[in-house]
């Protein structure tokens, strides 16, 4: 079913999406309507245009494809599913996501993957094609974030303060330039071929989605970031 979002507010638009019996829904002329696909399970939602903030928040197993750019808080606290952005997106992409995948063809804003976490079979993945802003993977507690830096080969494609407060998961950055100014909680090393196996599947999926050669991407140099102790905050306190 095709839903024309032209001059439709978010409340009515999302009501139509939730109430639509079809599994395959296309939203055309999106113009910043918030909360598209919020908490929705078992659907495929294709968005033409620009969806607003909190696209796919609490997403519970749907697939959302955006032909355009996304805005802030995409996939906030998403539990499962897939979000594919054929463009760039804003801040806090994948905030506290627990599982599922987010693929962004272009760049993403600040605090991408902040407080991502994992649990048993829940394992969140974010792959960004271009570059990202500051605080990538802040407070990351699990899952994998990959920044491919396509088109930004002459610089490190991440901003400052990567992994501040990180205490779980992995960040992979495809670059010849080591990220600078990392906090003490983060270990940074060049990824081995064995390490790259962790991300091969997701880079492959990214490449299929957006038409890249995954082997070529994976052959580049990657830096792998991990938290450097199991409990980095324990030594902070004294009982009073």
């Amino acid at each position: 079913m095709v839903i024309n979002a032209n001059e439709v507010g978010y409340f009515d638009l999302n009501k139509k999406i939730v109430e639509c019996p079809d599994e395959d829904i296309t939203v055309t002329n999106a113009m910043g309507q918030r909360y598209i696909g919020c908490g929705v399970a078992g659907k495929k939602i294709t968005v033409e245009g620009t969806p607003g903030n909190a696209l796919g928040a609490y997403l519970d197993g749907s697939r959302i494809i955006v032909h355009g750019n996304g805005q802030d808080a995409i996939g906030d606290t998403m539990n499962n599913g897939e979000i594919i952005i054929h463009g760039s997106c804003g801040d806090t992409t994948g905030y506290a996501m627990r599982s599922g995948k987010i693929f962004v063809k272009g760049n993403a804003g600040y605090r991408v993957g902040i407080h991502m976490k994992e649990y048993h079979e829940y394992f969140p993945k974010i792959v960004i094609g271009g570059k990202v802003g500051d605080f990538l993977g802040e407070y990351q507690a699990g899952g994998i974030i990959v920044v491919l830096g396509i088109g930004y080969e002459d610089e490190c494609p991440v901003g400052s303060f990567v992994g501040t407060g990180m205490h779980g998961g992995y960040i992979f950055i495809r670059s010849e330039h080591e990220p600078k100014g990392l906090p003490v909680q983060v270990c940074c090393e060049k990824a081995t071929d064995e390490d790259k196996k962790k991300i091969a599947e997701y880079v492959e999926e990214f490449s299929v989605n957006f038409g890249y050669n995954s082997e070529e991407l994976l052959s580049g140099n990657f830096y792998k970031l991990t938290p450097n102790t199991a409990s980095p905050y324990k030594q902070l306190y004294t009982h009073n």
Binding site: E118, H120, A141, G142, G165, H167, G168, Y233
Partner: peptide, 9 residues
Amino acid sequence: MIPMGTDAI
């Protein structure tokens, strides 16, 4: 919904 033994921050 977080692994055992990890800090919950």
